[in-house]
Design a protein around this nucleic acid. Structure first.
Lengths: 347, 347
DNA sequence: TGTATTTGTGTGTTCGAGCACATTTTTATT
DNA sequence: AATAAAAATGTGCTCGAACACACAAATACA
């Protein structure tokens, strides 16, 4: 395995390295004859430019700004910090700077303000968790005009101005929940779909999960579960959900579309006579505790840390090594139970 | 965020870059006075050597040899090809050469022969799937003497001569299977633990899975499942297993400790009156087909492709960027059902 | 005090790609 | 044919780390 350099090619083709360089980069100013000679050699050998040398020469500092919900307000985002740190420590010596900006996930205006601020700072790329649909679209357009690369994570916001998405297929994740519940609950029973603390007024991800969940039962089985959707919020002490639990007969399971599934498990501990299966999202400490105690049966892992890390590393390697950024990177949808959660915690 | 170079430090400390270099690499030949000056600057700033420049200067070719079971004989190893190709295309331009050597997984002598051959070729590192315990230990010692780095994947072979292991906790994976079956089978029923085609005489990984499986029921529940172990081989048309199925009353599930779980599902299709749950390992095409048809209920994903890729990339980055190799990298243990398998296939 | 010897310090080259600039060759114009 | 203009080609420097080697300063020994 010989590593060819531009110098080697120049020697083989009987031209100078400048000419080889011009051929490779199609910079023109090369005679027909020289072009042929160089291309002949390039066809014969497998030339791999040394990306170390290339990026050493490049020697720029690239700035990536990360726009995330404040993890103090929504703990789902806590693991992101680790993902960012990991990416930073890996790429900082290669000239990548990463800065984080937090917004209030209960407040769409806060999201817009942060985006305006970042726009002013004019980074090379932004990585955004686009919780608010309309505001996100607006921001994307602004970034496009300033030629700032945009990567989104967590939830898809279909828009051509986004160069890259890293996350999961949320419809499919609803189907996974449905299949799991189908296996552990009796036919003909009642299943509640609970949307908790839906402060994201124009957020669609809960709806996508519900869609997948319902689709599964509509198309995949001849079972006849009765599905009921329930919206419930903390400021109301989840009264709506508690009422549904009290008044509905024969509930076999509750599918919680967010990481707030621990709230449901806590509520259900007040009804020990009911044997209700619980499935929800994400490896929050509280959720894991309840999973261990069998008060939650399954969790689906959305892996925010991995999402951030992959998004950042794709951007970094695009800048440094010129690697192409995939338009869409769909992460696996992990099923978590009391026995395998630990294997995901230190990834 | 300023990127400091050796030249910067030299300027700040009022010495030459040669002196800075000697301080950083503790090469001696530096006066007390100069040492102090340089260290003072190093304390003040966060110097990150440019690894691109460093490895460009290094400019060596590193060879890694991969020793794997022939995927033609055991299809479990088919995805490894992709993992190797991925790693190769990522690191070839950085001077890493990867070569694959296949052995017959039904023949421990073949394993030893391949190791002897690789030892002769004297690569910088080897990555081995150490199916055969005794032969593996012998090989490790030989590699250690020649100062060849050894990384193992798939199954742990406790040995100090191994620098690095990438794989799963197989005992834990048995527990996961147990917990899943506990959720979908009735108490007091009979569960069969099936070891299929156990041609690896001194292989322990099936035993590890069985241990985890039994441990779970012994310690975690007050259920009283009856567990029965069954060894069965293809050359006997799996008669042993078929007999157990025919003669045992009240079988609720079969836990297959290998990727040959499709064989069990096929056998069970001859007993349509029995409602037996099936759980096993790995995303073979056949297994996925049966998972879709609900003839297999769960699969546990051992992710051989990821194991190889990570093992190779750790070695490559150790050589190129001097990144430390972790002694043990435990991968997550993925639970697969009919709805989430596809999200793992194109990873 | 002068000459070895040790110890310390700085300079210059290398790695490979990329690009600016100088130089040479070819083509166009009078 | 002479000159200007354009096109093609080659040279040499840069990026940052690493290290060989030349040179300088300090110490040892006659």
């Amino acid at each position: 395995m010989k590593k060819y350099t531009i110098k080697d090619i120049a020697l083989l083709a009987g031209v100078s390295k400048g000419t080889v360089d011009r051929v490779i980069h199609k910079r023109g100013k090369v005679s027909e004859k020289a072009l042929k000679k160089v291309n002949k050699i390039l066809d014969e050998i497998d030339y791999q430019p040394n990306i170390l040398a290339r990026s050493l020469k490049n020697n720029k500092i690239y700035s990536i700004h990360v726009i995330l919900p404040d993890p103090e307000i929504d703990p789902y985002w806590i693991p992101c910090k680790l993902g960012i740190e990991e990416a930073f420590s890996e790429y900082k010596s290669l000239g990548v700077s990463i800065e984080t900006f937090l917004f209030d996930p209960t407040n769409n205006q806060s999201f817009s303000e942060i985006n305006d601020k970042v726009l002013q700072l004019n980074p090379d790329a932004v990585l955004i968790a686009p919780l608010f649909f309309n505001e996100a679209i607006k921001a994307f357009n602004a970034y496009k005009e300033t030629e700032i690369l945009v990567t989104t994570i967590n939830n898809r916001v279909g828009d051509d101005n986004v160069n890259n998405f890293v996350g999961q297929d949320l419809v499919q994740s609803g189907k996974i929940a449905a299949r799991l519940l189908e296996m552990i609950t009796p036919d003909n029973s009642e299943i509640i779909i609970a949307h908790l603390d839906e402060f994201f007024l124009n957020a669609s991800f809960m709806q996508q999960k519900e869609k997948g969940f319902r689709d599964y039962f509509d198309t995949n089985t001849n079972n006849s579960y009765k599905l009921k959707t329930c919206h419930s919020i903390e400021s109301n002490q989840y009264k709506t959900l508690i009422d549904v639990i009290k008044t509905t007969k024969d509930i076999s399971a509750i599918f919680v579309t967010t990481s707030k599934v621990y709230k449901v498990a806590e509520i259900l501990s007040n009804f020990p006579e009911l044997k209700i299966k619980v499935i929800g999202y994400d490896l929050l400490d509280k959720n894991i505790e309840l999973l261990k105690n069998r008060q939650i049966d399954f969790l689906i892992h959305q892996n925010p840390r991995q999402q951030i890390y992959l998004g950042l590393s794709q951007l970094a390697e695009y800048f440094i090594f010129d690697k192409p950024v995939s338009k869409e990177k769909l992460l696996p949808i992990d099923i978590i139970n009391s026995e395998n959660f630990s294997s995901y915690l230190n990834q």
